[in-house]
C-alpha cells in the first residue's frame, strides 16, 4: 500500500513538474524568419469589439499559424485594467481611456497607445412588435434615468418600459451614460444624470439582445455588430425637430448618426512584433472588409 502510494506520488510530482516546465515555455512574441511570426497575443476588453477581434484573430492565425491569439470580452473597463496590470498585450475598448486610467498606467510604467480600428453606431433596439420607430435623445435619457416609465409617453402602447443596460464593466455603459443619459451632444446636457435604479444591468451584450428579442416591453443599446433581425432598430433624432437617422455604415461615416463612436485598441507603447503585424492586418483593406461583414463601420478611406 505504502509503496504504491509513494509510486503515485512520484508520478504526480513528475507530471506536475512537466506541466510547470511547459507552462513556463509559452514565449513572448518573437519574430522568427522573414515572414514567419510566432508567439502569443492576449486581447482583453470590450464585449462590443469581441466579435470583430475574434474574426480578425482567426484570419490572422490562418496566415501566421505559429501565432496564437486569445480574445476575451469582459468589458472595456477590465480590458484597460488588464493593460495597466500588463496581463493583456492588446486591450480592445469601446470607449476612450480616461485621464485617471492613464495616470494609473503611467504609475505602473505602462504607456497606453491608442489605435482606432473601426467605428460603431450605438443602436437602440426594441422588440419587433413595438409600434414606435424613432426616438429622441432626450426621450432615451428620460427612459434610462427613470423619468419615462411607460411606452405611451413616447408614442407607443400603454405598457411599462423595461430598460436594459450593460453593467459598469462595459465601455458601452459608460459611453451611453455620457452621450445619451447625460445628453452630451445637446444644450440640455447635465453631467449629474445617472442611470435610474430600475434599469437592468446585464453582464453581456448577448443577454441584452436576446432579452429584447423575447420581451415586447424591452429596450436596449447594443453595438451595431450585435443587431439581428430578431430586434427592431430605432431611428435616433437629435432633437424632436431633426429627422430620424438609422445607424448604418453611411450615416456613421458621414457623422449624421448622433451616437457613433470609435472602436479602439490600446497597447503598451506602439505595438511591436506579432502584435504590430496583427494590428497592421486589422487596419489593412482586407481587415477593414471584415469589419463590414461583422456589422461594424470601417475606417474612412484615406
Amino acid at each position: 500500500m505504502t509503496s504504491r502510494f509513494r509510486h503515485s506520488a512520484l508520478i504526480m510530482a513528475v507530471l506536475l513538474m512537466a506541466i510547470l516546465v511547459t507552462a513556463g515555455c509559452s514565449s513572448a512574441p518573437t519574430t522568427g524568419g522573414a515572414n514567419e511570426l510566432s508567439g502569443s497575443i492576449k486581447i482583453i476588453g470590450s464585449n462590443t469589439v469581441t466579435p470583430l477581434a475574434t474574426v480578425w484573430a482567426e484570419d490572422f492565425m490562418k496566415v501566421q499559424p505559429k501565432v496564437s491569439i486569445a480574445v476575451s470580452g469582459p468589458g472595456s473597463g477590465p480590458g484597460i485594467a488588464a493593460l495597466i496590470d500588463s496581463t493583456a498585450d492588446i486591450c480592445q475598448a469601446s470607449r476612450a481611456i480616461t485621464a485617471k486610467e492613464i495616470d494609473q498606467a503611467k504609475a505602473k510604467g505602462v504607456n497606453p497607445y491608442e489605435i482606432q480600428v473601426a467605428s460603431d453606431g450605438l443602436s437602440v433596439v426594441v422588440h419587433p412588435s413595438n409600434p414606435i420607430s424613432d426616438i429622441t435623445i432626450a426621450q432615451l435619457s428620460g427612459i434610462y434615468t427613470g423619468k419615462i416609465t411607460n411606452w405611451k409617453e413616447v408614442g407607443g402602447k400603454d405598457a411599462s418600459i423595461v430598460a436594459l443596460s450593460r453593467d459598469t464593466n462595459s465601455g458601452t455603459h459608460v459611453f451611453f451614460k455620457e452621450h445619451v443619459v447625460q445628453m452630451a451632444v445637446l444644450p440640455t446636457a447635465d453631467k449629474k444624470l445617472e442611470y435610474g435604479p430600475k434599469v437592468l444591468m446585464l453582464p453581456s451584450t448577448e443577454e441584452g439582445v436576446s432579452e429584447t428579442a423575447k420581451n415586447p416591453n424591452a429596450i436596449f443599446y447594443p453595438g451595431l455588430g450585435y443587431v439581428s433581425d430578431k430586434v427592431k432598430v430605432l431611428g435616433i433624432k437629435k432633437t424632436a425637430n431633426d429627422s430620424a437617422i438609422l445607424p448604418s455604415v453611411k450615416t456613421v461615416l458621414d457623422g449624421t448618426y448622433p451616437v457613433s463612436r470609435p472602436l479602439l485598441f490600446y497597447t503598451n507603447g506602439a505595438p511591436t512584433g506579432a502584435s504590430k503585424a496583427f494590428v497592421d492586418y486589422c487596419l489593412s483593406s482586407e481587415g477593414q472588409k471584415r469589419v463590414i461583414e461583422v456589422g461594424y463601420v470601417p475606417l474612412a478611406q484615406k
Partner: peptide
C-alpha cells in the same frame, strides 16, 4: 422586481475596479 444580490454586485463590479 429585478435585483442585484451581493454576489452579483461583486462579480459585475470587480472586473473594472482598479486595485
Amino acid at each position: 422586481d429585478p435585483m442585484t444580490p451581493m454576489t452579483a454586485a461583486i462579480a459585475s463590479g470587480i472586473g473594472n475596479a482598479v486595485r
